[in-house]
Simulated scan of single mutants.
Amino acid sequence: MHSPLSATVVISTYNQPDWLKLVLHSYDIQTTGNFEIIIADDGSDEATRRVIEDFKKSTSLKIIHLWQEDDGFQKTKVLNKAIVASKTDYLIFTDGDCIARNDFVETHLKLRKPNLALSGGYFKLTESISFKMNKDIVESQKCFDMDWLLEQGQPKSFKLNKLTKSRHKARILNHITPTKATFDGMNVSCWKNDILAVNGFDERMEYGGEDREVGERMMNNGVRFKQARYSTICVHLYHDRPYKNKNAEVLNLQIRQETKKNKSIYTKFGIFK
């Protein structure tokens, strides 16, 4: 008899099959297997579907591939579909270009508390290291090893502390970081009820702050956001952003300003219309 699943990992993706393959592998080697994965796919082509089908054959994890037609940047819509489709009461949101350290899911679950969302961070790999990545490197967890990364040419910076294995150091750094705890879609977790209460993502929003805005409504609704950027660890693979769009950024900013001004806790443009 399987114990009920503790979490749903929602991975958003769009036409990055090589990256997605590595990311999915990182979830296959987690220290807990007590979660399902929903791949929120904003219209990828056949190559992505093949990666997911192959992964389904090799893993014991429960995988749902939620696909919608490619109609420009419509990530908020597919994320809302994923929230509705999830079978658990705790959601971890991340992207198909973020490789999770093997304790990623377990740490999100350990740190969760009622009425709390966890704001994780990510460590950006250089372009050349990103293209060196393969399953063996993910398997061995070398991509989370500072010394290995420096040997490969990753520049030395304070940000390497995001890869700390020390829980004590992580606690201190989470406490003193000046970075605000926000809803950053690459690495954030919350209770399903808390995101449903604000009606999920605002589907008018395209790329740029669309994740922050749902977090701002959750905060207005009394959910506390806690910094976990040094505890829940993932590394971000390099890619271009062809979907950046000035008009969308202006609209998104306007929506966020309204949310702030009106202390909005609900959007009429979310899950329930």
Rank of each mutant, 00 (worst) to 15 (best):
H2R: 14
S3F: 11
S3D: 10
P4Y: 00
L5C: 05
L5S: 07
A7P: 06
A7F: 13
T13I: 12
Q16M: 03
Q16R: 14
L20C: 09
V23W: 00
L24S: 07
L24V: 12
H25F: 14
H25I: 05
H25E: 07
Y27T: 11
D28M: 09
I29L: 08
F35H: 04
I37G: 01
I39A: 01
A40H: 05
A40M: 10
G43N: 01
G43P: 00
E46Q: 04
R49H: 06
R49Q: 08
V51M: 03
I52S: 00
F55A: 02
F55Q: 00
K56M: 09
K57T: 13
K62R: 07
I64Y: 08
D70N: 11
D71Y: 10
G72H: 12
G72V: 04
Q74P: 06
T76Y: 08
L79T: 04
N80R: 01
K87D: 06
D89K: 10
Y90K: 02
I92T: 11
F93K: 03
T94I: 13
G96H: 06
I99F: 07
I99Q: 02
N102I: 12
K113M: 08
L116R: 10
L125M: 13
L125A: 14
T126D: 04
S130Y: 14
K132H: 06
K135G: 02
D136W: 03
D136I: 04
D136M: 04
K142D: 06
D145I: 10
L150H: 13
G153Q: 07
Q154A: 09
S157W: 08
F158C: 03
F158I: 10
R167T: 08
H168P: 06
A170K: 01
R171P: 06
I172K: 13
N174M: 03
H175W: 06
F183S: 08
M186P: 11
V188G: 01
S189G: 10
K192Q: 13
D194N: 14
L196K: 08
F201H: 13
E206V: 15
Y207F: 15
Y207T: 12
Y207C: 14
D211W: 01
R212I: 15
V214Q: 02
M218Q: 09
R224V: 01
A228T: 09
A228E: 00
T232W: 08
I233H: 08
I233W: 05
C234Y: 02
V235P: 01
H236N: 13
H236G: 12
H239V: 05
N245I: 15
N247F: 12
A248T: 03
L251Y: 04
N252W: 00
L253W: 14
I255A: 02
R256K: 11
K263Y: 00
T267H: 12
K268N: 08
K268V: 11
F269I: 04
F272Y: 15
F272M: 07
